[in-house]
Amino acid sequence: MNIFRFAGDMTHLLSIIVLLLKINATKSCAGVSLKTQELYLLVFVTRYLDLLYSYISLYNTFMKLFFICSSGCVIWYIREHKTVSQTYDSAQDTFRVLFLACPCMILALTVNHDFTVTEVLWTFSIYLEAVAILPQLVLLQRTKNVDTLTGNYVFLLGGYRALYLLNWIYRILTEPGYRQWIVWISGTIQTAIYCDFFYYYIKSWRNNERLSLPS
């Protein structure tokens, strides 16, 4: 594992901790998209099915379990927690997730490395992760004055993707024969989706203003 991969994973971990802290400390999930969180849970469950039959390292196993449990925990807060659930604004969080999940499944059934259940589901999770942030970005755009922690959460998630790009470049340069086109192309699209957000996040930070995305 190289430093970019590790930094990427830690940024991902930190983004989730920031999100959980925000929800727990403010007892509010204002500005957080339940749709995106549900898509992430679907991404993690379909990708980490290999927990049941293959072992890479204790590190990987721990991180996989953490990602599954933490997204389940966020969903539980938004749907079930007595006070937090009251702050969820379902009228704003209206993205049609089937418009994301169905094309990803069709693409996974068509473009994959092996036509087996686990390989297709793994490929589906790669495609779906690339677009799972969209309901969250749409919700931020509808929210005037995004709260700082929610903004930081999305910024860290985007940062994690950018670090993974560096990780792949490093691996291409150092590991002969290493290639994974499906992951690279999806990951590049995923990172590109954040460009616009990064621009406004950095601008608001430099001007010391609350983040708000133009609609």
Partner: peptide, 10 residues
């Protein structure tokens, strides 16, 4: 397509 990719990343 080509060989299955490594699944050592998260």
């Amino acid at each position: 397509p080509d060989d299955a990719p490594p699944k050592d990343e998260l």
